[in-house]
């Protein structure tokens, strides 16, 4: 089955105001000292003058032209004392210590792994910051170094926490918890990192038998539900932490995983921040519609889903 459609056309009758830069707009965009005091967040467009460069310093996302600080990206204005920055709406992930991220191993290096975590640079996972199978507590030896690929190899997905930063701004990860480590029994969905907010817990289990790990970097792991005891039991029984084998997953769970993934994709496409209640409501709506999983990716169904779910909140 194949269906063709047209690219979205620009609206025919839209009238875009066009001004010569010399024409003074009736809206005063320059911010003074007191505008910042009020503490409201304002959005900028690239090229929009923010404030005078004599009173403020330019930070990330801005540049100075004609003694004016001008935004170079679309985003929200932030100010720390005299420093004005614009935080871009759409950007790569900006890591902070303590963030939970989902990443993919890109390279195995001496005593460390390189991890793609949707950031500007690859993250680093040191051999010293992973747990040994079986929860043994000891220093990592040369023998561990030689069998690093038995822990993680290229392409493996893992969940980890940002531990620290290197001098060049790359993040260092750690998996020293029973909840962190290699991922299996599911699939990965990617959304813009701005859509994942800092929550109390980024491990969400939905009642439909699906577990979610919301990485703050926009990578979301959707997998079969595993009970806490099972998970921690696994961590102690030796090899299971670094296992590459999936458990038996029944058809209903697979369908639920696909459905949750599609819901996340719809939210990503509509640029709606994800929360557990939102996901749950959306899942219930999707089940109520009695449609196929694939229907969710149709534009009208997706729109209806978003309209229904956001109306409640």
């Amino acid at each position: 089955m194949i269906a063709f459609a047209s690219f979205a056309q620009p609206p025919q009758d839209a009238i875009f105001p066009r001004h010569h830069p010399d024409v003074v707009d009736d809206m005063d965009v320059d911010l003074g000292e007191d505008d910042f005091e009020r503490g409201y967040q304002r959005l900028t467009c690239p090229g929009e003058p923010i404030t005078s460069s004599q009173a403020f310093m330019r930070g990330h996302g801005t540049y100075v032209d004609n003694e004016e600080v001008i935004a170079s990206v679309a985003g929200t204005i932030e100010r720390v004392n005299k420093l004005v920055t614009v935080r871009a709406v759409r950007s790569r992930y900006n890591p902070e210590v303590g963030d939970l991220v989902v990443g993919r191993i890109t390279e195995v290096q001496p005593r460390r792994w390189k991890v793609d975590a949707n950031s500007r640079q690859d993250a680093v996972l040191m051999l010293s910051s992973v747990n040994l199978p079986g929860g043994v507590q000891r220093r990592k030896l040369e023998s561990d170094e030689l069998q690093m690929r038995t822990f993680f190899e290229d392409g493996d997905l893992l969940v980890a926490e940002v531990q620290a930063f290197f001098a060049d701004g790359a993040m260092s990860l750690h998996t020293r918890s029973l909840r962190y480590g290699k991922l299996r029994n599911g699939q990965l969905v990617t959304v813009p990192p701005a859509l994942i907010r800092r929550l109390k817990s980024h491990f969400i289990s939905l009642p439909c038998g699906v577990d979610l790990i919301l990485g703050l970097n926009g990578y979301i792991w959707v997998s079969k539900h595993m009970s806490q005891s099972q998970q921690e039991g696994d961590a102690f029984d030796g090899e299971a932490v670094y296992s590459n084998r999936n458990d038996e997953i029944d058809g209903a769970t697979r369908i639920a995983i696909s459905r949750v993934s599609n819901i996340i994709r719809v939210f990503g496409a509509h640029f709606i921040p994800l929360t557990d209640t939102l996901l749950l409501e959306a899942y219930e709506w999707a089940v109520e519609q009695e449609g196929d999983v694939r229907d969710l990716l149709q534009e009208d169904v997706g729109d209806a889903l978003v309209a229904t779910v956001t109306a409640h909140n």
Partner: peptide, 10 residues
């Protein structure tokens, strides 16, 4: 690249 677990899931 894809992990072995993802491959086997697919």
């Amino acid at each position: 690249s894809l992990s072995k677990a993802e491959k086997s899931y697919i």
